[in-house]
């Protein structure tokens, strides 16, 4: 049982796609929600939907797709009003699956571990394969 809620905030259909891909790998994952930025969104309209996905003061992890993008910018504004919310930006599927199956509390150590995992999940796979071939 996870101790925190997860909201994925991302451009276009990517938020929904992240959630459906995570469920493809991890099965039924509860307390996982997607909020996608639509082409006609203003920061305010996106912020309203994001805030609606963060209704209570349960610990909350917001994962955004791109540092500097509108989901990231708006997530930081929404999280400012939520003392129990943490934002990690530049999410990949490895981070999302790890976070979704995490049973630890959402503390600084957990956040640090998720960020480190996300960095190590990005790799030059061709070089890696070449270095292992005989």
């Amino acid at each position: 049982m996870r101790a925190f809620r997860i909201v994925v905030a991302a451009h276009g259909d990517l938020a929904d796609a992240f959630v459906s891909a995570a469920r493809l790998i991890g099965g039924d994952i509860e307390d996982l929600q997607a909020v996608g930025l639509r082409p006609d969104d203003s920061p305010e309209s996106f912020g309203e939907r994001l805030a609606a996905a963060c209704p209570d003061d349960r610990p909350l992890l917001i994962l955004t797709d791109l540092v500097g993008g509108t989901p990231h910018n708006v997530a930081l504004v929404v999280a400012r009003g939520l003392p129990t919310a943490t934002v990690i930006s530049g999410v990949n599927l490895a981070v999302l699956v790890e976070a979704a199956t995490c049973t630890d509390a959402l503390d600084a150590g957990t956040v640090e571990r998720l960020v480190a995992l996300g960095r190590s999940a990005l790799t030059d796979a061709s070089s890696l394969a070449a270095s292992r071939s005989p």
Partner: peptide
């Protein structure tokens, strides 16, 4: 641009 600095801009 009402998003000011964001993905398209950067």
């Amino acid at each position: 641009d009402d998003r000011l600095i964001h993905g398209q801009v950067v």
